[in-house]
Nucleic acid binder design. Sequence first.
DNA 1: CGATTCATTGACTAGAATCAAATACCGTGG
DNA 2: CCACGGTATTTGATTCTAGTCAATGAATCG
Lengths: 238, 238
Amino acid sequence: MLTQSATVKNAFNPSALRNPPVESKSPVETTSDDESLARSMHVVGSVLYYPRRTAIIHEDDPADRLYKVISGAVCTYKILSDGRRQIGGFYLPGDIFGLESAAGHTLAAESITNVKVLVIRKSALAPLAKQSAMMTNELLELTARELARAQDRVLLLSSKSAQERVVGFLFEMSKRASSTGNTVELPMSRQDIADYLGLTIETVSRTLWALENCGAIEISTRRRIAFRNRSALMQLQQ
Amino acid sequence: MLTQSATVKNAFNPSALRNPPVESKSPVETTSDDESLARSMHVVGSVLYYPRRTAIIHEDDPADRLYKVISGAVCTYKILSDGRRQIGGFYLPGDIFGLESAAGHTLAAESITNVKVLVIRKSALAPLAKQSAMMTNELLELTARELARAQDRVLLLSSKSAQERVVGFLFEMSKRASSTGNTVELPMSRQDIADYLGLTIETVSRTLWALENCGAIEISTRRRIAFRNRSALMQLQQ
DNA sequence: CGATTCATTGACTAGAATCAAATACCGTGG
DNA sequence: CCACGGTATTTGATTCTAGTCAATGAATCG
């Protein structure tokens, strides 16, 4: 359970970061349809800092909080009985996580990089929701979008090849992550990508190599990938 | 698009059913937390009948309706570019579908058996929702539950073997479908099961045979399966 | 009772997992 | 700045699971 003391233990001083938050690159965008929710979160929520690779939600935590990423990257996951890990999703600045847990079903969450998150108790949101039905609607909209994403993952996992998955992932990230021109910055490790796509780390590595080899991408750094031939990639993705 | 005329064309006379709705076996259960929604649906919604294997929602339909299964079984699905079909979910009496489309992302839906459904326009729901914030909350709760289910599917598809998938499916159905004692009645075809689990029909068939061979289940009819050794099955599922 | 669809079974193949090893990267401390 | 240790990643060889193709068998519908 995420107690106050646990939070304090995990907290770190943002001024001491070796990798400072990338707020300048990825400003927190509040889209028009979550404005009232965003405002409420800023009013009654509190900001927490987590260092890289720290638990934010444990799998058995009561699911009574919503989180908004301000800077950094977070993933939700589940550990299966045989030790395999499935990543439910990556959350980048502006994204909200903790929505799925309304049904008592909880994914764990951990920071991939140093992160700054806005936390709010759902119970603190309830009285505000009474005032404006707006906010409940926004929550509903967000949850429906999360559902749509999950269904896209179901599609991806059920019938796409390793190559299609990796290419799809690169496109998804180029849309969502901080990407300047043709370059995309991946905050997560190869293992994270593998666990997200339902592949092994070896397969992810080999697939990326193959994509580079055929001139579709260029792996500048491990964490930085440049698109060399977008249309060729499109075709590989189907 | 689902026009009134299309509805009429697809409609069938419930008194002429060869396989009458199983209302007596599977009564429509309205759980405590969707009571106000259920009431509203019954008040402003309308009942439609669809014969077996008929389109209820087309993939390009505007996503402005909610559906509640009264009797029979429905599946949502998507056809992939290469012709494969992925089933998003099965909906049995009492289940509501059409929730995911709030995000503009639509799955098609078709009847698996003859079905009776309650349909309501979301726009008709909106004015009622203003009166009671309750209902929006129920919708949120339902959507969150649907999200949790989708995430379970993601887990299942990303890292479970064919055997684990099939066993998991049997347990899911024994919980949800009309099951008397140790027998579960499957309204869907092998192909439906395969498309739901991300397997081929051959693999589903072989896996079921293997389960029967090792004494875990008994395939009385193609559509009726009896559990012979639940604890052995549990272990196979992991 | 035949026609058609649906399901099962068999033989073979392909793609990703696994196991094993080598290499590159990163932070640390000298 | 550079050597060092530990971790993350890449690469190689092999295995294994589920897919594919093909054919047979069973159920259902008219």
